[in-house]
Amino acid sequence: MATPVIASSAPDAAHQATPTLWGGARRPMGARYGKLMMWFFLLSDAFTFSGLLIAYGVLRMSHEWWPNPEVVFQSVPFVADYGMPLIFVGIMTFILIMSSVTMVLAVDAGHKQNQKMVTFWLFLTIIGGLMFLGCQALEWEHLIHQGATMSRNPFGPNYDPVNHIADFSAPQNFAQLFFTITGFHGGHVFSGVILLIILFINVVNGNYQRSGDYEMVEKIGLYWHFVDLVWVFVFTFFYLI
């Protein structure tokens, strides 16, 4: 007796009938719609950040003098107001790299359908994101306290953090560029944390365990890694060079 063809075996049959990748009936990019669209969104976001960073580069290049990052960023909140260059941003960078690693581990646990471990790693990732946001708030508060605003830059050649002397005779767009670009990045971290919290609730409720499909963890993971990627560039161009 002939077995009736069941619907779920049809894609496999079509797959065998069309051996070419672009011949139809299979995914030529090997990824489903949602993940593909996340990638293209991130590509467009990469253009946005490139636009901001390149504008910063051009403005910086066209000036003879520019604030030295080791002078501007030398405070560690609650520890020292000056004298510890780049230490605090080092901590922030470490937090973000760590949260990227915990995110990868969450994605990996998702592939293994391990609900408990996905929950655990996502929780750590959310904590990392919140810690980064807290650090950024503290750093902004310090810079604003030193006199930096969207239109004024106190970090001129005679800026003295020891005696609290501001010098406004330097390129005024330094502080504006700093707040805009780190703010835009921080906004991404913030929306990333919101997405992670929604994801966390869904994982805890077992939504993905029931459907056997943890791809949402992968998609939001892509976004989270992108935020880390942007920070790598912001870190180099604002704090190192």
Partner: peptide, 28 residues
């Protein structure tokens, strides 16, 4: 990932290189 996905992400990044070259010349 598949070649198609890989290159459709990496290739458009050349536009960033183009903008960078353009703006470095202008900055100079």
């Amino acid at each position: 990932e598949f070649k198609g996905l890989k290159w459709s992400i990496v290739f458009p990044l050349l536009f960033i290189v183009y903008l960078l070259v353009l703006m470095v010349l202008e900055g100079t």
